[in-house]
């Protein structure tokens, strides 16, 4: 069956109105507020997460592990999966830098967020001014969009999703471990600390963000034209679509909370805050 298009010429109409200058608009509302808020929020998170990732200490407190450092593949805490920090690190040209287990894993959640459809739209506006806001003039005349390199690479998003789903499993395990405290006899006893609830909330919010992903929505059923007769896919698609409708909200709540979770564990570890035991 024939597909594609015919070959009618679709030329750019002659005499289009002139482009607005950078920042030019007839809008009366405070259009700059949202891009400014996005710029401030993402910059603050970027600065804090970079600083936290380079610290390489104060990322655990007893049974709590900061989500910035999970999974701790190679590290010196009892949460480490594969062993201690690599001995060659101190002798290498990077020796001036403290080894941080975050180096090995932080690329995954950052890559997932960087290529996320919501964040893309948000930071194109806030950081590139492409456009600064709807109907507001742009700083550049040329435009490539995601049609060619480098932004065509954003199409890798689904691969970061696969990793992000694994991370949700790992963070869920961390949250579960957050309920098991060292007992008086040396064994583990069940308990609830404020930190346990912080880590559980973190997983719930990250889960709401990850499982509402546009790529996941496509993969579980959105890519098919007929979901009737496929009850599992249909329900999965409904579930993901439900979360997807508030994807922006999940994105921001999870971003703020994952940062707060690191702050909580860090300050408890430094002795600034005391973890409040509820049970």
């Amino acid at each position: 069956m024939a597909s594609g298009t015919t070959s009618l010429p679709v030329r750019t109409p002659a005499s289009l109105p002139a482009r607005s200058p950078f920042g030019g608009t007839m809008r009366r509302d405070r259009w700059w507020l949202q891009p400014l808020a996005v710029f401030t929020g993402l910059t603050a998170f970027g600065v804090y997460s970079t600083w936290a990732a380079f610290q390489g200490e104060f990322y655990t407190f007893g049974n709590y592990l900061s989500p910035f450092y999970s999974p701790e593949l190679l590290g010196d805490s009892h949460h480490a999966w594969l062993g201690p920090s690599p001995a060659w690190w101190a002798d290498s040209w990077l020796g001036w830098l403290r080894w941080s287990p975050a180096f090995m894993i932080l690329w995954a959640p950052l890559g997932f967020r960087f290529t996320c459809y919501y964040y893309r739209g948000a930071y194109y506006k806030a950081f590139w001014g492409d456009p600064p806001s709807c109907t507001v003039g742009e700083p550049r005349k040329s435009y490539l969009g995601e049609h060619s390199f480098p932004l065509i690479m954003q199409n890798i998003h689904r691969y970061f999703l696969y990793v992000a789903v694994i991370f949700i499993g790992i963070l869920s395990y961390d949250a579960w471990k957050g309920f098991w405290f060292e007992g008086p006899g040396g064994g583990e006893t069940f308990g609830i600390g404020l930190g346990s609830l912080v880590l559980v909330t973190n997983v719930v919010l990250l889960g709401g963000y990850t499982f509402g992903c546009h790529s996941l929505r496509h993969l579980v059923g959105g890519g098919m034209n007929r979901l009737s007769g496929r009850p599992l896919r249909r329900e999965a698609h409904r579930g993901v679509s439900c979360l997807n409708r508030r994807h922006m909200l999940w994105a921001w709540m999870s971003l703020v909370w994952v940062g707060f979770s690191d702050v909580y564990v860090r300050l408890c570890s430094m002795g600034v805050w005391t973890d409040w035991r509820i049970l």
Binding site: R120, P131, G145, I152
Partner: peptide, 16 residues
């Protein structure tokens, strides 16, 4: 056609 000629990649998801 959507990819090559109709430019779906130009959309940068501003949601305007």
């Amino acid at each position: 056609t959507l990819r090559k000629d109709q430019g779906v990649g130009y959309c940068n998801i501003t949601k305007c």
